[in-house]
Design a protein around this nucleic acid. Sequence first.
DNA 1: TCGCTTAGATTAATCGTTTAATCAGCGCTT
DNA 2: AAGCGCTGATTAAACGATTAATCTAAGCGA
Lengths: 357, 357
Amino acid sequence: MTTSRTRPNLSQIATLLDVSAATVSNALSGKGRVSEELAERIRAKAAELGYMPSQAGRALRTGRSQVLGLVLPDIANPLFPQIAQAIEHAASNAGYGVLIADSRGDVAMQTKAIQQLQDRGVDGIVIIPRRGTRVADIGSPVAVIDSPSTPGNTVSADHWQGGQLVARHLLDLGHRDFLLIGNNPASNVQNDRIGGIKSCLPASISAQILWVETHESRHGNGCHLGLAEKVRDGVTAFAAVSDLQALRALTELQGAGVRVPDDASVTGFDDLIWSSAITPALTTVRMDMAAIAEQAISALSAVIEAQNPADQVGSVMRASMVAKAEQPSVPMDLVIRQTTGPAPSQASKTPPAGDME
Amino acid sequence: MTTSRTRPNLSQIATLLDVSAATVSNALSGKGRVSEELAERIRAKAAELGYMPSQAGRALRTGRSQVLGLVLPDIANPLFPQIAQAIEHAASNAGYGVLIADSRGDVAMQTKAIQQLQDRGVDGIVIIPRRGTRVADIGSPVAVIDSPSTPGNTVSADHWQGGQLVARHLLDLGHRDFLLIGNNPASNVQNDRIGGIKSCLPASISAQILWVETHESRHGNGCHLGLAEKVRDGVTAFAAVSDLQALRALTELQGAGVRVPDDASVTGFDDLIWSSAITPALTTVRMDMAAIAEQAISALSAVIEAQNPADQVGSVMRASMVAKAEQPSVPMDLVIRQTTGPAPSQASKTPPAGDME
DNA sequence: TCGCTTAGATTAATCGTTTAATCAGCGCTT
DNA sequence: AAGCGCTGATTAAACGATTAATCTAAGCGA
């Protein structure tokens, strides 16, 4: 009942077993030379007391905190849950904790966030850069998750191939008139996705591109995208570069009386949480975040372990600290749900208004 | 150019200034007795070298890691970005880092996640419990964010009052026939919201409740909720307990040809990221996460500072470690957008099919 | 001038772990 | 029998910051 709840430490185990603290340390870490018999007794006692090494003590001695930083340019990103979950899981499996940093959407603060993480003594940093941003050499091991076409990228989904998945799926359904919906043309990720789609479309296929941010900067935030008019012009396939845009497209079309998928098909990217909850459920392309996180963490810990902790981080001989993954490009998966269907027959190219039920 | 990039430490500053390390420590922390003149010189030198105290060294000595744990039952929760951002910001202002823990939706793993955080030496834990879950005494300072009606709650939004906001808004618009859409009846938060709504509705008002999970367990996942039929039966106001359900309702209604907000109004809760991006933009109730996080963190750090680090955490005299906030209940804000409008006139109670444009 | 207080600094111990260096036996070889 | 090599353990020195205890003058009143 009156169990002393002080976390046990090495020397407590040591005195209890009448050995030295060093021996206990050696026994538990498997290093040094300890007889198997004694090692077993030590392990037993440690387990009995529920011993857990003090991170602070260990960190001080080894110079390793066993903590990674995770920085996203905009933590409000709807993908954040997926990313954080995957990174946390992979990191935890590798023995690391994950410290989050927020730059609140401010590009300048990204540097400050990184700085803060370093001040807290993280061993490395996983960074998902804001679109277009290059990550400079920050003096810590770092893994970059962006897009395969970004220089300095460690690992990411194969957005291009994801785009091809979308294109082929829609092509197979008979669609011949596309509208590609992107948000911001400065994004590598979005450009890859769009590039992938276009790479699969024969020259005979019509494919316009609509950049939402550009459009909004002219017509105001939350303005109509004029998608119903596009349908009247013959567009039957709306391929958005993110589920967010796809949802916007879907609701705008539905509100205008265009039936999805009967009159037009809609696809997205990322499989955000609500994509399967809406009516009709969204056809989308999912990235294998678990695999990506796995690659990122293992590449990152390789860099961390490679660098000598006693290293003065001097001028010479400092290899780049940005991690390179074994498999830098992870395939995406097409998730076919209900917003995609066969292209409407040519005859009813202009869908009748008021057609319902 | 060949600047030694080793992080400077106290003794480096000390030897450089020909004083003792203790004096440097005292000068920088403002404790102890140091002449103002010397203190100034020390601060200057520290700034010049970009000195940052080693967290490991400090943690070892003081027993404080300056790190908080954040545990959510399900990190995939779409509210997570908002929460994480707010908590991180408040914690950062209070000098804490935030370590995330994921229990991957598994209730049993929640305990393990907490354990892991403690092993990493966090000073305290912020926990948003899974619906219905009680947080047992975990032996660390803890702040609980759930609902005001939850025993042991530290701080949360005033979900009841939020519900009242919704009810009054819809009442003002002339609605007299409500359908309340919840997800799971075991959730304190959802019950509070629904309770708040109902508390404002006179007895003359019809208000049914639809629990989505219960409904789905009978009709399969992603099934139709039969909302269009409800409209035919006279319902004009759909008040969902979360934006996720509201979105589902909205798309189902739109798909069935019900015009929102002309034929029916829809409201949600939480103001999730996409709520303003859809057409029509969703009327919802937002919680003031910044204020909530602020309260949680300040209450938590009060508990942390109150406990004696040298405390053996023995049997006696251990006050409860769950933090109590000054203002445990933070008002919510109604965000009126486009999914709510005046109730349709009695005459057109049954909306004509195919009415459009 | 002595003694006392006090400002301003230093000493040294401590937190818990790791690890290089050392040491004590013991069995074997030559 | 002296010396060598090996095993299984111990010693002691870090890592970097904090802080209680101590020390040294200087200032001041009596």
